[in-house]
Every structure is written in structure tokens, then in C-alpha cells.
Simulated assay, not measured.
Amino acid sequence: MKVNKIEHIGIAVKNLDTAIPYYEKVLGLECYRIEEVEEQKVKTAFFKVGEVKIELLESTDPEGPIGKFVEKKGEGMHHIAFAVDNIEDQLVDAEEKGVRLIDKTPRGGAEGLDIAFLHPKSTFGVLTELCEDKNK
């Protein structure tokens, strides 16, 4: 597997409207995009810190993955995402090296990225997302 950079860090929050002001007023960042990803039952807000993005994740359904995460673990870091090329090949490579995949094939994510997750039981407890921007 070859990782190009950290694409973003995902942080689960209960409510974007109450979380965004912290990032804007306290940290001085600018929320440049809010987007709902219906398939994942999540609403996202993005901030840039240099080359890395912070993605806030608010569940739109208590039974969705973020809703379940917040219910079980509370608000906080949810995942780290790495930018890759040829995401399909990277998934094959990871699986061949014994990594358990959540997604065997990429799916659509926020900002038009193709995404796939690696299971935290295979990544030392860190939910890991691979992202590819096929439009670049």
C-alpha cells in the first residue's frame, strides 16, 4: 500500500451547530463546506488546517454508524483518512497482507471522494479510511 498524505481526520459530534463555533471562534478555522451523505446517514462539516482537513460528522439517524458510535463512545475522534491512488488496488493489497476490510469495494463519500474503510481490529484500534479523488 502507498499512502500519499493524511486526507482528513474525522471527528464525531452530536450536533454540527454547536461544534462548528468551537472550530471557527476558538481555533480560528473556517468551515468551507457542509454536506449530507445520505447513504452513510451523516452530515459533515469541513475545515482546512494546512493540507489536512478536519471532518466533523453528525449522525442523521441514530441507527447510522456515527449515531451508534456517539451512543457507545461519545463525541470524539472517529477515524483517520489517507489519500491514495488506485483505491481498488490498495484494498486488494491490504487484504492480501491480512487486513480486515469493512469495504471490499469503494463507495461514494463526502466531497465526491471514493472511500473504503479498514477494520479497526486490524489497524490497532484506529478506524482507517482510504480516499481517492478520481476527479483530480
Rank of each mutant, 00 (worst) to 15 (best):
3 V>C: 07
3 V>Q: 11
4 N>P: 00
6 I>G: 02
8 H>M: 05
8 H>L: 05
10 G>V: 09
15 N>P: 00
15 N>F: 01
16 L>G: 02
18 T>L: 05
18 T>W: 02
19 A>W: 01
21 P>Y: 08
23 Y>W: 13
23 Y>C: 09
28 G>C: 11
29 L>E: 01
29 L>P: 02
32 Y>A: 00
32 Y>E: 07
34 I>F: 00
35 E>S: 10
36 E>D: 11
37 V>S: 08
40 Q>R: 13
47 F>Y: 06
48 K>S: 14
49 V>E: 00
49 V>C: 13
50 G>N: 07
50 G>H: 09
53 K>R: 15
53 K>P: 01
56 L>N: 08
60 T>S: 05
62 P>A: 12
67 G>S: 07
68 K>M: 11
70 V>P: 05
72 K>P: 02
72 K>C: 00
72 K>S: 09
74 G>Q: 02
79 H>N: 08
79 H>M: 08
82 F>Q: 11
84 V>K: 07
84 V>S: 07
88 E>L: 06
92 V>L: 11
98 G>M: 10
98 G>H: 09
99 V>D: 00
100 R>A: 12
103 D>A: 04
104 K>P: 00
104 K>A: 06
105 T>H: 10
105 T>G: 00
109 G>P: 12
116 A>E: 05
118 L>M: 07
120 P>S: 06
120 P>Y: 01
122 S>P: 01
124 F>E: 14
124 F>R: 14
130 L>P: 01
132 E>H: 10
132 E>G: 06
134 K>C: 11
135 N>K: 13
136 K>L: 13
